[in-house]
Amino acid sequence: MIKVLIADDQHLVRGALAALLNMERDLEVVAECSDGDEVLAAVAEHAPDVVLLDVQMPRMDGLTAAGLVRAKHPQIKVLIVTTFDRPGYFRQAFEVGAHGFLVKDASPAELADAVRRVQAGGKVIDPQLAMLSVESASNPLTEREREILALAAAGSPVSKIAQEIHLSVGTVRNHLSNAIGKTDGSNRIEAARIAQERGWI
């Protein structure tokens, strides 16, 4: 029996995924999480064989959670299951050690097969996304620029961003200016939108 943990902030989606996988004779969903922060504790408690992670979740995104799971539990396989078929997310998923990347419009049979394949040591790679990932530009943003742009995307003013990450207002403005230039955006909101569309933040 392959034990599976699912993390997705949408209750209906999470429940549907769990129901579909539990219908398979060789798969068992042992835990469900609503955000990335819950994943590590659930992994330690339930010892799943495969962890299914959405990309965009509150408090901790799925890609960050994937990296932490792989670092602390290298025997566990990670499969990203998301609505967002962005080349940037695809590339980041494998950079942090994920074993597969599946878009949520895949069929139930494809999902179950993907779980079995990563558990057996294989990779689940969408050929079209892989090609787009190769063709698209790599992420030009520094880690600090990504962090600040993500906060800006949430609508936080510069003063609040500066306070939250313990930098001066001037330093935050400099990072935002650099990020705007690298994304070819006209302002920080547009820069954040472009970066999100490309999977850079």
Rank of each mutant, 00 (worst) to 15 (best):
K77F: 03
R117V: 01
D54P: 05
S159T: 13
A137F: 00
S138W: 11
N178R: 03
G121P: 03
E28R: 10
V158Q: 13
V103L: 04
G185N: 08
E147I: 12
P87M: 07
A191D: 13
V43N: 08
Q56S: 12
H99D: 12
K182W: 09
Q119G: 11
A120M: 03
C33W: 12
M1S: 13
L53H: 12
G155Y: 08
V172G: 05
Q75W: 10
Q92D: 01
D49K: 01
G122P: 02
S168R: 08
N187C: 15
R70T: 09
A114G: 06
K123Q: 06
G36K: 08
D126I: 01
R198K: 15
I125A: 00
H11S: 14
V78F: 05
E145H: 03
G185C: 10
Q119E: 11
P157G: 06
F101H: 09
K160M: 11
L167W: 09
A150Q: 12
Q10A: 13
D126T: 01
M57E: 12
S34L: 14
L12A: 15
Q56D: 06
L151K: 02
A42Y: 00
A192I: 01
Q119N: 14
R86P: 00
R86G: 00
N187Y: 15
A162Y: 02
Y89R: 03
N178L: 12
H175I: 10
H175M: 11
E147L: 14
T64F: 04
D35K: 02
G88C: 03
P58Y: 06
L79V: 02
P74A: 11
A137D: 07
A150V: 06
A192H: 02
L52A: 08
R86H: 09
V69F: 09
